[in-house]
Structure formats: structure tokens, C-alpha cells
């Protein structure tokens, strides 16, 4: 055959001996336009990575805004950041890392086809995710009570005269500078809010995955959804790994 471009006529079957090392498996989830299950899996994972690139750039804009204003208004960012609770933030970091650990175990369980282990690991991932959101909610509520939510009700008095509010370890700052605490809190809410939104979407997907895992969908060699969701979940973790030091730990030793 001098050329093998196929016209509308079906041609002779070609030699298939070239790539014998590829196992010719068919799983029920195999989609017709992929030649092999492996091609489908690698396409899926590559697609997920590209999606995560868009997420990097999406958060990237916020991170740049943070970088800029932190340098411009460092004196406002320090007291504003010190109002956040390191205990709660640190606990949440640990919780999120634990959740990510169970997600990693879930991926392993799917790969070695342990159905019961997979379901349990996914449930634990979900529970730790929910714990994170709950603690986050407590923190947001605190800021709401202290009128640190940006907008018309934003109140600078705790930054201008900390002593009057019973805060002894903060230096007072000028009202002009204190106005800029609002920018910190906006960035705080935007970044943690965007992050929490990703977690809530993730938890929704987790519930769906748990139901499917319980049905046995991922214990017969089809692990792509678990693996790809794992990538997403770990990416959300990574965002938080940066948010925690950037938002909570700007300067924890101001009075020295």
C-alpha cells in the first residue's frame, strides 16, 4: 500500500504487531473516540492539569494584588493580619493536609482496587474538608462581629486605638493607614472565599464520587475520576499552603 490515508472505503486491516506491549483492555467506561483505555486516561489527566493551570492564573491575579498592597501598606497589613487567629489558621492547615492525605490514600485504594478502603478514605477526605469549612466559618464570623468585613460597616477603631478595645500587644496606627486595613481584609475574604468556594465544589464532587465508589465503579481498573479529582483536591491544598503564611503570619512579633 503506497499510502494509507483512508478514503470512505474501508481498507485492509493493518498490521498491529508494532505495539504489542500495549494491553488491549476494554473497560465499560471506555469512550469510543479513544483507541485505548490508556490513551483515555492520559488525556484525562493532561486535561485536568491544564485546568489547574487556569486555576494558577486565576489565583495568580489575587496573589499579585496581595503582593502589591502588602508592600504599599505593610503597616496596615501587620495589625490586620494579627487579628486573625494563628491557632485556628494553623489547625485548619493541619486539617486540610490530613484531608489531602486521605485523598492520596483514596487514589492508592482505587489503584489497588480496594473498594471498602476507597469509600472510607473518601468519606474521611470529605469530613476533614467539612471541618475546614466549619472552622473557616467560625473565623469569618469573628471578623463579622469585629466589623472587619470590608464595605460600609468596616470599622477602623480597633486598629487606631487597640488599647481601648483591650488589645495590648498591638501598636496603634494612624486613621489614614488604618483605612488600608480594609484592603487586607478584602484580599483575605476574596482569597479565602475563593479557596472555600473551590472546597465546597470539591466536597460536592466528593459526595458524588463516594456514591459511585460505593457502587463499585472505581474498583475494576477505572480510576481516572478519582485520580483527577485527587489532583484538584491537592491543588486546593497547595493554594492554602501559601494563603496561610501570607495572610496569618505577616509579622507575629510586632512589639519587639
Amino acid at each position: 500500500m503506497d499510502n494509507s490515508i483512508v478514503t470512505t472505503e474501508p481498507l485492509m486491516p493493518r498490521e498491529t504487531a508494532v505495539h504489542e506491549e500495549h494491553e488491549h483492555v476494554f473497560i465499560p467506561q471506555h469512550r469510543h473516540h479513544f483507541e485505548t483505555e490508556e490513551q483515555q486516561r492520559e488525556a484525562g489527566s493532561f486535561g485536568m492539569w491544564l485546568f489547574l493551570l487556569t486555576e494558577i492564573m486565576f489565583f495568580g491575579g489575587l496573589f499579585f494584588a496581595y503582593l502589591l498592597y502588602r508592600n504599599w501598606y505593610y503597616d496596615a497589613f501587620v495589625p490586620a493580619s494579627n487579628f486573625l487567629s494563628v491557632t485556628l489558621g494553623g489547625t485548619n492547615t493541619a486539617i486540610l493536609i490530613t484531608s489531602g492525605f486521605f485523598m492520596a490514600l483514596a487514589v492508592w485504594a482505587a489503584e489497588v482496587r480496594k473498594k471498602q478502603f476507597l469509600v472510607i478514605a473518601l468519606i474521611l477526605t470529605t469530613l476533614f474538608g467539612l471541618a475546614f469549612i466549619s472552622i473557616k466559618y467560625v473565623e469569618w464570623h469573628d471578623e463579622w462581629v469585629h466589623r472587619h468585613v470590608p464595605g460600609a460597616s468596616f470599622d477602623i477603631s480597633e486598629f487606631v486605638s487597640p488599647k481601648a478595645h483591650g488589645i495590648t500587644d498591638q501598636k496603634p496606627i494612624s486613621p489614614d493607614m488604618a483605612e488600608h486595613c480594609q484592603i487586607f481584609f478584602f484580599l483575605y475574604f476574596a482569597m479565602t472565599g475563593m479557596h472555600a468556594l473551590h472546597m465546597i465544589i470539591g466536597i460536592g464532587l466528593l459526595v458524588w464520587l463516594i456514591l459511585r465508589a460505593q457502587r463499585g465503579d472505581f474498583s475494576a481498573g477505572y480510576v481516572a475520576p478519582i485520580e483527577n479529582f485527587g489532583l484538584y483536591w491537592h491543588f486546593v491544598d497547595i493554594v492554602w499552603l501559601f494563603l496561610f503564611p501570607l495572610l496569618y503570619l505577616i509579622n507575629r512579633h510586632p512589639l519587639k
Binding site: 493493518r14 498490521e15 498491529t16 508494532v18 505495539h19 500495549h22 494491553e23 488491549h24 476494554f26 483507541e35 485505548t36 490508556e38 490513551q39 486516561r41 492520559e42 492525605f101 492520596a104 490514600l105 492508592w108 489503584e111 489497588v112
Partner: peptide, 24 residues
Amino acid sequence: YHDPANVTNPEHSEHHIVSPVQYS
């Protein structure tokens, strides 16, 4: 019409399973 020989995959990586010990 599905044929593994139809996949162009010049740099294919093995599906590696990371062990729970490593994860821990």
C-alpha cells in the same frame, strides 16, 4: 476499529502507584 497501534504516544510513562508508606 479500536487498535492500540493507532495511538501516537512518543513519551509514555508507566502508571506508577505510590505506596501508602510514601504518602505517610
